[in-house]
Nucleic acid binder design. Structure first.
Lengths: 249, 249
DNA sequence: GCTGTGCTTTGACGCAGATCAATATTGAAA
DNA sequence: TTTCAATATTGATCTGCGTCAAAGCACAGC
């Protein structure tokens, strides 16, 4: 068993499945939770394992408990584009769909909390909260996807890298205390190739731009995977983002 | 007043607002419809007009009745990326959000059916159908966004153009009868610049690739805006899409 | 008719990032 | 320890698309 992820919104007192906290319940004291409890089960995957292949039948929906999963699309000739990056408490799968529209892969060791789809859908039909919470989460994902589209369509390689690092830094800032003087540091959960697939670049370009950002003092590297961001605002500026946009949420 | 859009799923017998058919009701005979009726109103925009600016307060949600609207994001230095293209029956705005996250612009003359947001949200809280239908639509949009991400990140200019034409051809195939022998023809609703913003290209590249596709016989042009696709499968092949993927839905 | 004003096409040229290739680094297995 | 495979870096070269610039075209107003 795994310790529950760090939760926001004051739901720490609840049990260990994030969907109880973030995807479904608003106040953690409704009796639908008991029904959910009965149809849930856990699943673990090792880094690199595929959770579902594009086109496969998918008879469950799930919530990421620990680790990172990615959604990728692949063209016939092998060109790959990552289209989703799922962190703890994110939702996978969709009520009302038979098959998965893209590959879901465990990027790191991964634990998910699954709900059998049919009973979940039945529960959803009788419980307005669930569809509403799911709608809210899906709209957030849609916003993220559209931000990502701006990145893919219009940003330079350097801006793309900085944007990705800013996203990861922001997400991790909730979990780790900042180092002294506002410097943020975190472990990269992605290989250079995965970063390239995220950003619509080649791994060589990713590597070159990382070196360039290091040389320019925008980031520091400790080993290959640990990143230190001495000045987050500078990173945002390099990323080409609206710099005022809500520092660290 | 405007004639209602062509509707699918056998809902032609209902009144003229598409949200009654596609966004909200499953069977067109519930009494929530009367409540919706009370909070709805229509709005028209001319081609080129902005419906809402990014960051503006948005106190309504809406459904496109006729015409085309686009969602775009803009960077400080003016680089623009279209992130959504809304056709009749598509939904704009989101329950639970105060401000618009991107510009919404009328690409052609546009009519939308609006619902005041507060009462709509109240209705949603008491009516499971609505959130469920909205969730379904949002998931469809998310899928489209992810397909679009593959296009932006990994496709060549030629493939991008062919993909866009295929999307437009598919959408219009519902409305217009095919010409003889499976040839599809439709009017481009976008300028070259708007196509460029959609595809993450410059308008010059769009123009060049259109010429190239014409020279190669993949498409024919009648004037600047009318497109004839003699062989839809060929177009899909040029687009780099899985060619088996459900011809014309 | 003429004259503008958008929109579109086409050409010439340069550069950001892809491609091809070699080498370095790391960590796990033997 | 050595060896091997996976991952990452760096260099040299190529090319697709962007940039800058100049026409071409079509339609509205006069």
């Amino acid at each position: 068993m795994v310790s529950p992820p760090v939760l926001e919104r004051g739901h720490q007192e609840c049990a260990d499945c994030p969907i109880r906290h973030r995807a479904v319940c608003a106040r953690c004291d409704t009796n639908e939770l008991d029904q959910l409890e009965q149809i849930k089960y856990y699943r673990s995957y090792q880094a690199g394992q595929t959770v579902v292949w594009s086109g496969d039948r998918m008879d469950f929906v799930a919530s990421v408990v620990t680790g990172i999963a990615s959604l990728t699309q692949t063209m016939e000739d092998g060109r790959r584009q990552m289209v989703g990056l799922l962190l703890p408490s994110d939702f996978v799968g969709r009520p009302g769909r038979e098959t998965a529209p893209y590959d879901v892969t465990a990027t790191t060791d991964l634990m998910v909390c699954c709900f059998r789809k049919k009973p979940f859908e039945a529960l959803m039909a009788t419980t307005p909260h669930i569809a509403q919470r799911l709608l809210e989460m899906t709209l957030d994902e849609l916003d993220a996807a559209r931000e990502w589209m701006l990145l893919l369509g219009r940003k330079t390689a350097r801006e793309k890298i900085a944007s990705l690092l800013a996203i990861l830094a922001r997400r991790n800032a909730n979990l780790h205390l900042k180092a002294a003087k506002g410097a943020i540091n975190f472990d990269l959960p992605l290989t250079r190739e995965e970063m390239a697939d995220y950003l619509g670049l080649t791994l060589e370009t990713v590597s070159r731009q990382m070196s360039s950002l290091r040389k320019d003092g925008v980031i520091q590297l400790e080993g290959k995977r640990h990143i230190i961001v001495p000045d987050f605002d500078l990173l945002l500026e390099v990323a080409g983002d609206d710099s005022d946009g809500g520092m660290l949420m």
